[in-house]
């Protein structure tokens, strides 16, 4: 049975196994390799996507439950050729190192900017509990988020 997903505004069909993790469909079928399957158990956040607007680890989402949903991946968060508010702030803050965690960070933080416009430093830390970064030690990511929150 073919599944029907809406990914970054495009309607796509997939014949994947219903229990296949969404992250594998995005990467292997659609070649949207932004989401990274780093831990495959919901701890690291590197495969985060927005499903119907909600940040969701795509490693824990089976294809069957993504069927019919609006999925936004990191590739679809900004106008082509541009950066969205959090991407621009992370770039300006020189926050990026190896970059593997950033697709997930960007998805989580893009959501945070609208869901918690008054977030404090501690709120941002708590919000990132499920987004692990091995390179940066987080502080610059938090600084950039505060910068983005202050930039309307």
């Amino acid at each position: 049975m073919a599944l029907s997903l809406t990914v970054n505004g495009d309607r796509v069909a997939s014949t994947a196994d219903p229990a296949a993790p969404l992250v594998d469909i995005l990467r292997e079928e659609l070649h949207l390799t932004g989401a990274k399957p780093v831990c495959r158990e919901g701890f690291c956040g590197a495969c985060m996507v927005l499903i119907d607007g909600k940040p969701t680890p795509s490693c824990l989402t089976p294809a069957a439950l993504a069927d019919g949903c609006e999925i936004q991946t990191v590739e679809g968060l900004a106008t082509p050729g541009q950066l969205n508010r959090i991407q621009a702030a992370l770039d300006a803050s020189d926050a990026v190192q190896c970059g593997m965690c950033f697709p997930g960070m960007v998805v989580s933080l893009t959501h945070l900017l609208t869901a918690s416009p008054d977030a404090t430093r501690e709120d941002i830390r708590a919000a990132l509990t499920g987004n692990i970064c091995r390179c940066t030690g987080y502080e610059r990511i938090i600084d950039a988020t505060l910068l983005a929150l202050a930039t309307k």
Partner: peptide
Amino acid sequence: MDLRRRDAADKLRGRTRYTVDRY
């Protein structure tokens, strides 16, 4: 000094192709 990273924008947009992303 304090030159920004040229690879940051694509890393932030999920466009960078690491080895795991090669096909």
